[in-house]
Design a binder for these strands. Sequence first.
DNA 1: TTGAAAGCGCTAACAG
DNA 2: CTGTTAGCGCTTTCAA
Lengths: 335, 335
Amino acid sequence: MRITTEDIARICGVSRGTVDRALNNRPGISPKTKEKVLKVAKELGYRPNMIARSLAKGHTMSIGVVVFDLNNEFFAQLLNSIEIRARELGYFTYLVLTQKDPKVEKECLSHLVDRNVDGIILFSINKGDKFDDFLKNLHKPIISILNFISYQFPFIGVDEMHCMMDAVNLAVKKGYSHLIYVSPPLAQDNKHNTYTLEQRLKGFIQGCKENKLDQSNYTIINNYDYIKQLDDIVRSKTSTNPDNRTAILCSSDIYALEILRYLEAQGFKIPHDIGVMGFDNINTLKYVKPGLTTISYPIDDIAVKAVDSLIKIIKGEEISNTSFLSHSIIERESL
Amino acid sequence: MRITTEDIARICGVSRGTVDRALNNRPGISPKTKEKVLKVAKELGYRPNMIARSLAKGHTMSIGVVVFDLNNEFFAQLLNSIEIRARELGYFTYLVLTQKDPKVEKECLSHLVDRNVDGIILFSINKGDKFDDFLKNLHKPIISILNFISYQFPFIGVDEMHCMMDAVNLAVKKGYSHLIYVSPPLAQDNKHNTYTLEQRLKGFIQGCKENKLDQSNYTIINNYDYIKQLDDIVRSKTSTNPDNRTAILCSSDIYALEILRYLEAQGFKIPHDIGVMGFDNINTLKYVKPGLTTISYPIDDIAVKAVDSLIKIIKGEEISNTSFLSHSIIERESL
DNA sequence: TTGAAAGCGCTAACAG
DNA sequence: CTGTTAGCGCTTTCAA
């Protein structure tokens, strides 16, 4: 089949140890034999068997990336940048999609360890003490991204709470006096890790507080039936009085997009009648009219930092336990 | 460190062979010892080392997926479905992004083989006899998708040419008498595998022929400066005469989207003044106004079929060499 | 400078 | 039914 070091050794009339010294240019070999071995290896098209190497060395030069799916462009971009960066540094990446199933996530994590990945980048759907223990028992470097797990694991993300506070501030500054917050996935927060969503919600509430909006001035919608619920609220609250306009802030661009479509269909003018704001700044927004005002995440930076940090840990270096990268507001037309 | 079969053997006072028989329930072991071994293994939290298993068995239960990037949602969806399907069947997937660099693609392909993946799903950017030889020398099952490589390798995709013929037919049926075909990536076809693009172009030309449109009735734009070029043509050709309207057919939704934005900014009414049609039916289209008429690819089917076929080959079964899955036209408002 | 041998952890063929 | 042995292909230590 494939050429092995043994083949080369036999042909060159040397031992496998010597072949290894030549191939991985280690000291203790004469230039002459080295040259010969290298020449034969090249002629035969020798390629090292990484599986065997992994077994012998105890590492695989591969990492695992665990996210729930790629339907949100956001994750596709993240994964894209992770793969590029990882390979730049010599690592191959295993992709694992958990479909938001906590059990699947745990199983896959274990499987990755069985395959001896050197480290894992994890956007987790699990959380809690038991999960912490589970992760600890994996005995592998792990970087959590975006969805915070616990202080036991390095984390890279953004300050979600302040993102949403900034959003509220912007809305208030623009003169909106009634706010609606739409975050459907909150509906499932009993079982899943919904850190990012919770932080955004907190930010919304805190932002309202700081702007002296009480509960009669804001509404929170936390289920997937949001269009219907919105319908009721919008009809009763919306006013043509320019001093009493309402703005809808969403936990993700995708909901904002749906809402935009719905409002347009209902004949509302955006932002004249109602303001809308998203979150994530996905690529799609480039093609959307009216332009959606949103919060921008530094996706590439998160990806690169996650990979770099992970590999530092793998190599035994120290890294800071938690890093928040900075966000920004992208102002377009919808708010 | 981790528990090994040797540990279990020692503790149970049996040999590693026996442990193996219990763990992988193979025949030739008494129920009693088997039970005991299993119990100890469970207590100790034993997990097989897949690297060692791979080395011993000669396969890794993993596949490689090679595409150029994930910026196009199309690929994200494809990859998503591939991963899901592969893991259903027990395979983990390595993701490799080539950034449209033919050299990188070849290197990565070799690396995947070095890592002993059991098979590869490839959307190739390379082509030609030399590349065929290269792939052959990999001695690995390979499924090519969408970008045809050669008859030497199984292929799964759609009949791109007929897709575009259907598009032309639709445009003509709708009364457009002048067609513009926009396919910027054709600009680079000297070095890359641009099978899909060439086929679409052929389909466009053939469609025009069959509809008796000669070269004065259609225009082909094959560079990234298409907006500017479009500007000139549109100004001279566009007519308010309803019997002489022009339609712009694009090789990808993303160009159609750009064009839509441009035309709107110029004050054109779509489709009243000019018709526009895309290709791919990416998710983004759900949020675009006016709705973009386009060609829909069976992304999930391609993904699932690619995985299934690959694994059949891996298992030594026969598969049909080429499969074209069926496409459909999604009629919305823009044409 | 080189060779021999052991080991990574598992599988599989062969004896007993 | 069970133990022994010989690999898988590479790395690494210890002698020579």
